[in-house]
């Protein structure tokens, strides 16, 4: 079990990526899958900083990685605003370029990359995002 807490700042993203990278190296994902997991984690942490906390320096992100022989379970915890993924529209790339709005692209990436994604808010004000990727 890997567990660490990072300040909710964009500067933390590279450190979080390195931390998760160490954990998933144990499983031996292929290079592309390992990369994609790091993208999903980056997108999730960016969303926490931007949307849950409403900006940098408002709170921490706790990251834990449970590694088994054939999967990794990554859990991100924050104490910002609760997040309901059903309220985020999927970006529409069929519109003309000038009308394109990219909001929601990070969430689409997370959901397409990971095998399971679950958002929960606990009664004591913690948001828990659990993401699972199988080998």
């Amino acid at each position: 079990m890997y567990k660490a807490t990072f300040p909710g700042r964009f500067k933390s993203l590279a450190e979080i990526s390195e931390f998760v990278s160490r954990a998933i190296n144990e499983i031996g994902f292929d290079e592309t899958t390992a990369y994609m997991i790091l993208v999903a984690v980056d997108e999730a942490c960016t969303n926490i900083i931007e949307h849950a906390y409403g900006g940098e320096g408002q709170g921490d992100i706790q990251c834990s990685c449970d590694v088994t022989e054939d999967l990794v379970k990554i859990t991100l915890r924050d104490r910002g605003e609760p997040f309901d993924p059903t309220t985020v529209p999927e970006p529409d790339f069929s519109v003309p370029l000038q009308e394109l709005n990219c909001r929601g692209a990070g969430l689409v990436l997370i959901q397409k990359i990971m095998d399971e994604t679950n958002f929960e808010s606990t009664p004591d004000g913690e948001n828990v995002l659990t993401m699972i990727k199988r080998k």
Partner: peptide
């Protein structure tokens, strides 16, 4: 590179 392109293609991000 291939892994970046593959990942971005998942969300249609390289369409333009």
């Amino acid at each position: 590179n291939e892994k970046i392109q593959h990942t971005l293609d998942l969300a249609g991000l390289l369409t333009f």
